[in-house]
Amino acid sequence: MGVPQIEMRDVGLSYFSPKHETEALRDIRLEVKAGEFISIVGPSGCGKSTLLSLVSGMLKPTRGEVLLMGERVNGVSPRVGYMLQHDHLFEWRDVLSNLLVGAEVRRIDKKKAKEKALYLLERYGLGGFAHHSPSQLSGGMRQRVALVRTLVAEPDILLLDEPFSALDFQTRLTLADDVHHIIKEQGKTAILVTHDIPEAITMADRVLVMSKRPSTFSASYDIVFDEGPDLTPWRKREAGRFQEYFNGIWKELDAHVASAG
């Protein structure tokens, strides 16, 4: 087994303000293999998004270190793509030129990026929309465009920060299937942060539960279904062990919430 793609060694993070010091994360230890999909759930405000910011290099850890492919993270890495809760599509650009934002920032060859963008649009059912304005797309389509925008910048690792939470329930379920399919097909490593337990279970190979502040991982569940490894998130909701996982994670989370109250 080679070097883990993402590794966090005893990472801690504190926020400082003139009046307070807030310890957000403590003793975070994490290893993610290439191509693995992990979900992180936890009580709100427990620093899940902070953890993603650490992996992406947007924040520096106060203690410990974050490594990508064995290299210490120092600033925003081009290996990492971020998918945010809001799609942040720019209304003054059409869909295609929105897809090229990341490539433009990272100075990736424009022609190659454009080809890739058009290919991905076609591949994921958005073929006819390259020259539409974002305001003409539905919420689910906008999020898919946002995912493609991240992929055009060719990251190895995708960080998904509650990417479905702004959508209605129905769109959410179908989009989860799509995104899962796209990420698996593209062979990316992914970390999904969510507060939706079923979403966490059905998308990931492994679910990590975070405790309340100062947060650390309190439990880890390897998600394996008897029905086979290639179930879509939708099918997994009906799979035999789904309820068992759900109850386990629910209890674990409940303990944190109860002790917080």
Binding site: M58, V76, P78, Y82, L84, H86, H88, V101, G102, V105
Partner: peptide
């Protein structure tokens, strides 16, 4: 507050 988060994530 809103639009720059994306640009930050690309390291702009």
């Amino acid at each position: 507050k809103t639009k720059l988060k994306l640009m930050e994530s690309f390291g702009a």
